[in-house]
Simulated assay, not measured.
Amino acid sequence: MAKMLEVNDLHVNFSTYGGTVKAVRGIGFDLHEGETLAIVGESGCGKSVTANAIMQLIPDPPGKIAGGTITFNGRELTAVREKDMRSIRGVDISMIFQDPMTALNPTLTIGSQLTEGLKEHYQTSTAEAKTKALEMMQLVGIPNPEERFRQYPHQFSGGMRQRMVIAIALICEPELLIADEPTTALDVTIQAQILELFERIQASTGVAIILITHDLGVVAKIADRIIVMYAGKMVEEGTRDEIFYESEHPYTKGLLKSVPRLDNQTQLIPIDGTPPDLFAPPKGCPFTARCPMAMVVCDNVYPPSSHLSDTHSVDCWLQDERAERLMAQTADKT
């Protein structure tokens, strides 16, 4: 599959009265056509900021892309003018925002919001736009689309509103869909339906998906690759099987231990402590203060990236051969 998106050494800062928040600190990844990439991590780790940076939606001020490149189909997005970026958003790259109720305008009908993109970008006639909209409503599983087309967001359930937000994002047939916490406010049953909907849409349209979530359990079924973020850094990256069955970073292991499983009754183990202050990020590994395996070097020097396979990498000093000897010596003494 061809590479469509490449993010390289991305830095995003926010200037505040209290100082500069370093929200994203040198992350890099790529995405291929038709692929589903999940970015996971707890609140405040930089997931949504990364998505907004790709869409060039970082408000300046106070935000600023302080370094790095974002290349989409050979085009450097950080150098694109806002006027030109508007022709990319919704057409080539679309985004599903976190809260479907606030993403939809309560004063406009569902139909007018669904057809707006077609009229804006393609100058489609009202009749043609409605026909396309009804087809899209059927694709995302909205019953009685003719009737629903004339209704307002408050007449839809939470799950139905989420489906409509997805339909609006897909109406112009983008190559890349960014879904930011698309199932957070939904119950488990509706979550499963939305994830199955993503699978069906991808199979029928071939759209590539970046799925942002704080819950590894949400991406267990549909993600091809997973990136784990912590305190603005990418701490581990790998295929779905590598992250779930061969994870190496203590933070990733901690996330997995906090996810309930159906195949056993193991007690859930929370990760103690809190993330570091990104006004003054630590010099070393940001997970040091919460890591049960932390060493002196972890607090002072950020670990190099260790490539465990062609697709699996981890930023952790435990992968260093010197750490292996140290752990062995400690085990012998005990």
Results as ranks from 00 to 15, higher is better:
Arg200Met: 10
Arg261Leu: 09
Met229Thr: 05
Arg261Thr: 10
His11Tyr: 15
Ile171Phe: 04
Pro61Gln: 06
Arg290Gln: 04
Ile110Asn: 14
Gly68Gln: 08
Arg161Trp: 02
Gly68Ala: 11
Thr115Ala: 12
Ala331Arg: 14
Ile271Val: 13
Gly63His: 02
Glu248Gln: 13
Ala208Glu: 12
Ile271Cys: 08
Leu118Tyr: 08
Ile222Ser: 00
Val218Gly: 01
Pro153Gly: 05
Val21Tyr: 04
Thr252Phe: 04
Pro275Ile: 10
Pro143Ile: 03
Lys130Leu: 07
Glu147Ile: 10
Thr183Ala: 08
Asp30Pro: 09
Ile27Tyr: 10
Pro303Cys: 07
Met85Gln: 06
Val21His: 01
Asp263Lys: 11
Leu278Phe: 12
Leu278Met: 15
Val235Thr: 09
Ser112Gly: 02
Leu211Gly: 02
Glu173Thr: 14
Gln265Ile: 09
Thr69Cys: 01
Glu248Lys: 14
Met327Trp: 13
Ile166Thr: 12
Glu147Pro: 02
Arg325Pro: 00
Met136Ala: 06
Thr109Lys: 14
Glu242Phe: 02
Ile65Met: 07
Asn8Gly: 04
Thr252Leu: 13
Ile58Met: 03
Leu114Asp: 00
Thr184Ser: 15
His154Lys: 05
Asn13Phe: 13
Thr16Met: 03
Met1Leu: 11
Ala223Asn: 01
Ile243Lys: 00
Lys283Ile: 03
Leu57Ile: 08
Thr205Gly: 03
Ser48Lys: 08
Glu146Ser: 11
Ser247His: 15
